[in-house]
Write a protein that binds this DNA or RNA. Structure first.
Lengths: 126, 126
DNA sequence: TAGTCATTATTACACTTGTAATCCATGACT
DNA sequence: AGTCATGGATTACAAGTGTAATAATGACTA
């Protein structure tokens, strides 16, 4: 079983995305990666990294004088955890109602729809 | 266009569900409706109602001595707003990646999948 | 060797959220 | 008319978040 992923706040998610994209990274590298994406002072980013570390969502390598940070959970794992609690909260735990609502209104490309259809087919036939 | 829905916290959502289910209701009626669902003291529920009111997510009728509360936004509107910001945050704004991930793993019944397929068909053919 | 600079560590501070309790006013009851 | 219960208004208080600034420390430089 996957252990429980700690809560990751909105700002913290931005940091995590950078680390999932490429890690380990130093605080400065994280700062650079966020150029243009988030408008935070380096100190703020550092704080977020520290909090993630304290929460055990991020690990730190302190071998070098300049630390490097890396995720302790896979992105998919965290996405699933978030999505599950989100669906419970907002849609009363039933995935379908959300899918319906969003597939109805959301702009999905032809290819996207094709892909979804294939997934459905595969599941149905199995 | 729908005005921006204010943020609704996790606990507040529970209250909203009750009001969407049936409103207007008095604070006491809300308390009763939450029997067995959430384990809050009546005072807590009252606080949540007041906060929702202050946030303008809930309206109050003060004609009677005992107030009644009612939602100022439709449930769907709020669900959409939440879902949109959720997807942006967690899936980088692309609905599809989430759908794929969840359709792959989630237990959807035959009927659910049939319904989804029909929606896809309708959209594709259009 | 002392000063400077880059990093890390510590501290700050307001706002939101979870979770209530206390205070106050008014109608109902005696 | 005084009292009490009930609902509304105000207050509480800690944890989490957003957003940093300041202090301490170790490494390099003049």
């Amino acid at each position: 079983m996957s252990k429980n992923v700690p809560n990751i706040s909105e700002s913290e998610w931005e940091i995590m995305k950078v680390l999932w994209d490429n890690s380990p990274r130093t605080a400065n590298e994280v700062v650079s990666s966020l150029q243009g994406k988030a408008d935070w002072k380096p100190k703020t980013i550092r704080t977020l990294l520290d909090r993630l570390t304290k929460k055990k969502v991020v690990g730190v390598n302190k071998e070098q004088r300049i630390y490097t940070f890396y995720p302790l959970y896979a992105e998919e794992e965290c996405q699933r955890a978030e999505t599950r609690s989100f669906i419970d909260r907002i849609y009363g735990g039933t995935m379908k109602s959300m899918l319906v609502q969003f597939m109805e209104e959301e702009a999905l490309s032809e290819e996207d729809m094709e892909e979804l259809r294939q997934i459905l087919d595969k599941k149905t036939s199995k």
